[in-house]
Design a protein around this nucleic acid. Structure first.
Length: 425
DNA sequence: TCTGGGGTCCTAGGACCC
DNA sequence: TCTGGGGTCCTAGGACCC
């Protein structure tokens, strides 16, 4: 068996880099991108990181830092980031079809079948091409396992002298020795103290731990980590397009809600988006859940949840809205200030080949009508824009809609927000 | 006043069965 | 009245990731 070689392509400060494509004036300035409701920092430029703004920093706590250092703030613009991400993925697909899109800003490539002489030189070319064609800086780590590729890319990002590409297919020991154990992919804030207590403080000492001992400390995950750090691949390239297992739409509201109809509008909106995703993945759901909570930062924090089984699997927006609204009616308590809510779908079955229930009572005609209705709805909204055609329940109120005061234009995905170019001379 | 959102996998324990 | 062992399935919670 040929030894696998993975390359991990990781975009630097991805959301910030996307904003800078259309705002070159922001190069060298501290920039952050804020989450929904402009709640906390989810991406930071290097300059912002140097000001000590951590990942997930609550915006209200850092207001002074923002003001004092003139930190430029953006509300998250996922339409833009998704579009740029797809462009980068398209470039990578021209390198090899053996690609796993791991997240919006990271992809693994399997290089083992490619005729590459020198990995570092190859990586620099890819990096240069992505920069020229999209304006996004990336870092690349190359190694025989995903865990080592991840470790490589972290070093490539942090140390400018590496030049953005680190090949760890040779002897990785010096890099392993200088990696604290909590920086290893798969070691988080709970497992790190466990390892430290066992006097395992670096990636190198984790690699040299007895697999059995690692398993006793961390479960099966520990054994995999040791093997991966030692160069034996346990996590293969996952083929893209794997059916997802759950879909969630949850939001903290723009303002707290007590009114039933506004809540209904929010839930209907979540159902619409979730059902659309479900159809996109060509599946149907057998279970749908709903939750509501008050503000977790206030005394008397409470939550409510409910679940509905769909005996006949569905992906029809209307069916999901009506079952969730029925559940909402059971859970709703007048006078409560609701702060956050969400809808979950799980227990999926493939869309084609619907399973008749035990008594064969599936109404085939109704089923076909629902399918045709959803196709029409999706077509119209794809052509004329999201929410062109929507369910009435979604329009009952809008106070729940999260705030996003400083979102940049959707430069590449909305006709009326395209950048303007002025030709001079 | 102001603290995000969307996923996956593993494990322990209970229910149930033979 | 007391009493064994083994297996599966499901769920809730924990842990991680971006």
């Amino acid at each position: 068996v040929k030894r696998p070689i993975f390359a991990l392509i990781d975009c630097n400060n991805f959301f910030v880099s996307c904003e800078r494509i259309f705002r070159p004036d922001l190069a060298g300035k501290p920039v952050v991108v804020l989450s929904s409701n402009d709640g906390c920092a989810v991406a930071r430029s290097d300059e912002a990181k140097r000001l000590g703004i951590p990942m997930g920093a609550p915006a209200f706590k850092y207001r002074e830092v923002f003001e004092r250092h003139e930190v430029v703030r953006f509300s998250a613009n996922f339409e833009l980031y998704g579009d740029i991400s797809r462009r980068i993925t398209a470039i990578l697909r021209t390198v090899t079809p053996r690609i796993e899109v791991y997240s919006i800003d990271e992809s693994f490539l399997d290089l083992s079948e490619l005729p590459i002489g020198e990995y570092t030189a190859w990586g620099r070319l890819v990096r240069e091409r992505i920069w020229r064609w999209t304006g996004v800086p990336v870092s690349i780590g190359i190694a025989p396992t995903k865990t080592l590729a991840k470790l490589a890319v972290e070093h490539a990002k942090k140390r400018p002298e590496i030049g953005g590409v680190l090949d760890l297919t040779g002897d990785p020991d010096t890099y392993l020795a200088s990696t604290p154990v909590e920086a290893v992919w798969g070691v988080g804030r709970r497992l790190a103290p466990r390892l430290r207590a066992a006097r395992i403080a670096t990636a190198l000492s984790l690699r040299d731990t007895r697999p059995q001992y690692a398993q006793s400390l961390l479960g099966i995950h520990g054994r995999h980590l040791v093997a991966e750090l030692a160069g034996t691949s346990c996590f293969p390239l996952e083929r893209s397009g794997k059916a997802r297992q759950s879909i969630a739409r949850t939001r903290t509201f723009g303002e707290d809600i007590s009114d039933f109809y506004t809540l209904e509008a929010a839930i209907a909106g979540f159902c619409t988006q979730a059902a659309y995703r479900l159809r996109e993945s060509r599946q149907r759901t057998r279970r749908a859940g709903l939750f509501l909570t008050t503000d977790r930062h206030k005394p008397g924090y409470r939550g409510w949840k409910g679940e509905v089984a769909h005996e006949v699997p569905v992906n029809d927006t209307g069916a999901i809205i009506s079952s969730m609204i029925a559940k909402l009616k059971e859970l709703y308590i007048p006078g409560v200030s609701y702060h956050r809510a969400g809808v979950f779908l799980y227990d999926f079955v493939p869309e084609n080949g619907i399973q008749a229930d035990l008594f064969g009572s599936v109404d085939v005609a109704a089923h076909d009508r629902a399918g045709a209705r959803m196709r029409t709805l999706d077509d119209i909204n794809a052509r004329f824009g999201k929410r062109t055609l929507r369910y009435a329940a979604e329009d009952l109120g809008s106070a729940w809609v999260p705030r996003s005061g400083s979102r940049s234009p959707r430069y590449v995905s909305a006709w009326n927000e395209l950048p303007r170019v002025r030709i001079v001379g």
